[in-house]
Structure formats: C-alpha cells, structure tokens
C-alpha cells in the first residue's frame, strides 16, 4: 500500500504520463456563438477536439459531440443523465466550448434556448459514476465554476481565474493547438496529458497577450492532482501502431518508466554522480525497449 502511494506520488512529481491505453469517454459541447464568427469558431474547435479524441478512442461511441442547435439544455442534461445510468466509466472528459456568464452568484453556459447553470453542471457531474473526470470549461467567466467543480478525482480547467473575466476567451483555440501539436508533449511519450495540454495553452495565452501588448483578460486555471495521468491525445507510433505493439513490451516500458520515477524521487538523497549513473542505466534500458517497440510496430505494420 505504501509502495503504491509512493509510486503514485512519484508519478505526479516526475510528470510522466502513464502509458496505459486510454479508457476515456469524451463529451464535447459547443454553445451559442451569438454571431456567425463565434458560432463557426466554437463548432470548429469542438469538432477538432472530438476528432482528436476519436483517434485514440477504443470505440467511436466513446466520443460524443454536441454542437450548434443541438446543444439545447434538455439534450445536454439528458446526455449526462444517460451517462450516469450506464456502467461505471473509467475516465470522463468533458469540454464546454463557448460563452459563459456570471451575475455575481450564478454561472451560466450560453446555449440555444434557456442557458444551463453552473449548479446544474456540477450536479450532473457529481451524479456520474466515474473513476476520474476531466472537466474543461473553456468559456468566459468560467473561473466562477472552479471552486464548485473542484473535488477529489476530478481535474478542472477553466479559461478564467474568476467569474469577473467576462470577455470572449482564446483558450479553446490553444487547447486545439495543444492536442494537435507534438510540442505540448514535453515528456515525449507520444501522449498529451491534461496537464501538458493546459501548460501549453496557458503559455500560449500569456505569450499572445504579451506579444500583442494587451492587458490579459483571461487567466486559465487548473485544479486537480490527476492532471498528469489523464490522457487527452496521443500521436506517433503509440497512435498509429498501438494495435501491433505487444502488451509485454508496453508493460516492460512502463515498468522501467516507473523505476525512473522512483529513482527521481530519491534524487536529493543520492550522490549526484551515483544518481546519474543509475539514471543512465535505466535510460539505456528504456531506449532499448523503445527501439524494440518501434521496430516491432514497424515490422508488424509492414506485414
């Protein structure tokens, strides 16, 4: 038990995303645009996010996209209720893309017809039987939901730091960039985690406002310990050859990766030269396994 929690802590500390195949159920909802430009933008971002999720999904049914006129209150609530009635989900990933508002007390996600309130969103998500949740509220004023949504086993990403940042946000655009650009994958494991996605988008937003010399009107926030372990996209061999890579090799790769995490946790307690010697051995071992995986995948693929 102690070993397991140590390992988990190491995983969080070292920032390595686990390699297990994703078992995500992804729901992407784009809300009311208010004008043609925003309507088109929100739909495009939502589609891109859903498309990227489908690439790594085990089944097409694991990705649900609701956009445009379909994004009505009854449909969204019905959808979330249905999810709560089914079998327990491993990981639910929910994206809300669009405009939000906050009147000082209540957050509302703007959709055609009556808006859906923050309380309703929180209630519906709390009712779901899931191991983990990632909730991305990429709307103006979404910071108002940060605290109400925060709980164990849930990672929350909002576009703003509070409900008073009411301008349209750029976060959805940078989220799309993050999951489609390999640069977001800082640990280079061909998996983009929620944490990596957020870090990429957060930097891009800061850079945008600095470059344009504008006062930043959005300050994205992330809450939740599990951000590094929730996968939002994958690419490269892991994506294209995943079916042909033997589980044994993937398991070996993960085992070495865990040893690296454990070693890194002990870095401060070990003599520096000794630490790097041990790290070098593990890294060489990992490189060897990685090479075999790449070759195995390629040869299977060639057949």
């Amino acid at each position: 038990m102690r070993m397991r929690s140590l390992w988990l802590a190491g995983l969080l500390w070292t920032g390595i995303t686990p390699l297990a195949n994703a078992a995500n159920t992804t729901v992407v909802i784009s809300g009311l645009g208010g004008n043609a430009d925003y309507t088109e933008q929100f739909a495009r971002y939502a589609t891109s996010i859903a498309d990227q999720a489908r690439l790594a999904a085990r089944s097409p049914q694991d990705v649900i996209l609701v956009r445009g006129d379909a994004a009505k209150r009854s449909i969204i609530i019905g959808l979330l209720n249905n999810l709560s009635k089914g079998p327990a989900l491993d990981t639910l990933v929910l994206y809300l893309i669009g405009h939000g508002s906050f009147d000082g007390d209540n957050y509302k996600f703007n959709i055609p017809g009556a808006d859906i309130t923050g309380d309703e969103i929180v209630e519906a998500l709390n009712a779901l039987n899931t191991n983990r949740q990632l909730v991305v509220v990429a709307t103006s004023a979404s910071g108002a939901l940060l605290e109400p949504l925060t709980q164990d086993n849930r990672v929350v990403i909002t576009a703003t730091k509070n409900g008073r940042e009411r301008n349209a946000v750029r976060l959805p655009m940078y989220l799309v960039d993050a999951i489609t650009d390999q640069k977001a994958d800082t640990d280079k494991n061909e998996i983009i985690s929620a944490k990596e996605m957020f870090a990429y988008a957060d930097r891009a937003i800061t850079s945008y406002y600095n470059t344009e010399k504008l006062l930043a009107s959005e300050h994205p926030r992330l809450e939740g310990e599990l951000a590094q372990s929730i996968e939002v996209a994958r690419y490269g061999n892991l994506l294209t050859l995943q079916a042909s890579i033997p589980d044994e090799l993937l398991g070996k790769r993960e085992a070495i990766s865990n040893q690296i995490s454990t070693l890194r946790l002990r870095k401060d307690d070990i003599d520096e030269d000794d630490y790097f010697d041990r790290l070098e051995n593990l890294m060489l071992e990992l490189a060897d396994v990685q090479k075999t995986i790449d070759q195995a995948g390629n040869s299977d693929n060639a057949n």
């Binding site: 920032g15 390595i16 800082t186 640990d187 280079k188 494991n189 061909e190 990766s257 690296i260 890194r264 790290l279 890294m283 990992l286 990685q290 790449d294």
Partner: peptide, 8 residues
Amino acid sequence: LEQAPFFR
C-alpha cells in the same frame, strides 16, 4: 531524458 524519458 529526465524531463522526457521517451525522447527518441
């Protein structure tokens, strides 16, 4: 590699 163990 400490930062990115799978960096080819």
